[in-house]
Write a protein that binds this DNA or RNA. Structure first.
Lengths: 256, 256
DNA sequence: CCATCTTTGTGCACGCGTTCACAAAGACAT
DNA sequence: ATGTCTTTGTGAACGCGTGCACAAAGATGG
């Protein structure tokens, strides 16, 4: 019953690498902040620092969008904000439905970052009849029975699943059947979807486990390399996997 | 995949590639489900399907941990659960603090997936004096003033930041100064940390923007291939497909 | 107009991650 | 024991992503 030989390049976004796409929102956020401070232009070096990436990487990322910079000067902030927004499709309205209004679903509904980026919570859906009609974040919760109609009436193409793991696949199937082609999944389950549907998942448990792994490793190295000369603790960008080569010395862990 | 993960040197942590570490929790979840159904052994093909990955990749991942399989038979489920748990450091207790008890922080505090994986919410911290003492998920919220003492008293090394963006860096600095070396950041900000500190970020806004990009692209291609297209350019996007993965857990996580 | 200085855009090399394909290893039947 | 069958473990090829290093482009000043 294996899935057929689904041949696909895995990653190929018609010119723009997936890794670049994933960073565009980061640049956009930094640029928006600059825009609010009325900064007219910014160099790749400055913007890269604000976004926490390498400047060469940033320039290469922008090169996929076109040549929007001016040599010797930098990038026009407003123009870049517009170009990235357009590229990401944020210049249009994206109605979104959230399915599963528990603690998490409610938190998502209350999230303010939606509207600011063109995302609009079109509806909240829950399987609990007792929730029906009850307003969450000013939006009345609707029952799962009406899922298909809600999707259709609002022209929703992006769905957020915040249900328990057991219900996720079923909800996913209904969303897809109703026309949703992009899903953000918060349930700790691997979703099975047909080709043409994008799924991104966010899983707290997994994130913590990854941190635990590194934490354990750090603890082990520290105990082993007790006495080695710690290197100077330099201020770096975010996410420092912070480890040296195998035979390299172990970096200092932290101040006591 | 949706984990906000800033690519880094990605140096192999003593043999195990970062990409493999990120998948171990996925395997563990699938294996736990099998274990609960009292399945004794599983082949790489079956397990890979359950985890939504390629079987060759799974075998290579396991090969980094050692040779735990039996040719012609497969892997012993219980043994593998133990080995992966140990490798991830889940056999020990990880006290965690959550800073910022708003909608999201509360949702995280209520998340049931903590204890089941060795993570224990040691304390909830918020800057609002009005929150102090108020119980959330059965745990009384404490004030930010006591952050350092809380970290120290509980031996906390993993911190979760669920504050507004503006407060995140400050909270982060205090956590790190107090001894925290792993941070899960839900605030939409680039955190600056010293070497030796791991930061993983989860950002709903970014995830949605990435989905919007693909959604827009799909819509565009569809419109173009609608009619006079010489070659019916079909999209080749989407993710792996697999099925099942009941965990009974409720999702958690989101941006702020 | 020319020289100099700044910053972009990118060719190139390198390393990680993925996947294929197959030999080796073990189970199982005869 | 021997042969067959299943499944692991991995060598090798390939592609993507990253970052260096530099030439080209444009601004700026004399």
């Amino acid at each position: 019953m294996a899935t057929g030989r689904t041949h696909r390049p895995a990653t190929r976004s018609r010119g723009i690498p997936e890794a670049t796409v994933a960073r565009l929102p980061l640049y956009l956020r930094a640029l928006t902040a600059l825009s609010e401070r009325s900064v007219p232009t910014v160099s790749s070096e400055e913007l890269a620092a604000a976004a926490g990436v390498n400047s060469a990487k940033l320039r290469k990322d922008f090169s996929y969008l076109g040549s929007y910079g001016t040599r010797g000067v930098g990038y026009d902030v407003e123009y870049l904000v517009y170009q990235i927004s357009r590229e990401l499709g944020l210049t249009q309205d994206w109605p979104v439905v959230i399915v599963g209004i528990g603690n998490l679903g409610a938190a998502l509904a209350n999230y303010g970052g939606f509207a600011s980026r063109g995302f609009r919570v079109a509806a909240l859906i829950d399987a609990d009849p007792a929730m029906a009609g009850k307003p969450v974040a000013g939006i009345p919760v609707q029952h799962t029975d009406d899922l298909e109609k809600i999707i259709d009436d609002n022209g929703v193409s992006i769905g957020v699943i915040a249900t328990p793991a057991g219900a996720a696949q079923q909800v996913c199937d209904r969303l897809v059947a109703a026309g949703v082609t992009s899903i953000l999944n918060f349930a700790p389950t691997v979703l099975s979807v047909p080709d043409g549907v994008d799924v991104r998942k966010v899983d707290l448990s997994i994130e913590l486990q990854i941190l635990a792994f590194h934490e354990q490793r750090k603890a082990g190295e520290e105990a082993q390399a007790d006495g080695a000369g710690p290197a100077a603790v330099t201020r770096e960008e975010s996410d420092a996997s912070a480890d040296q080569g195998p035979d390299g010395d172990v970096p200092a862990v932290m101040p006591a």
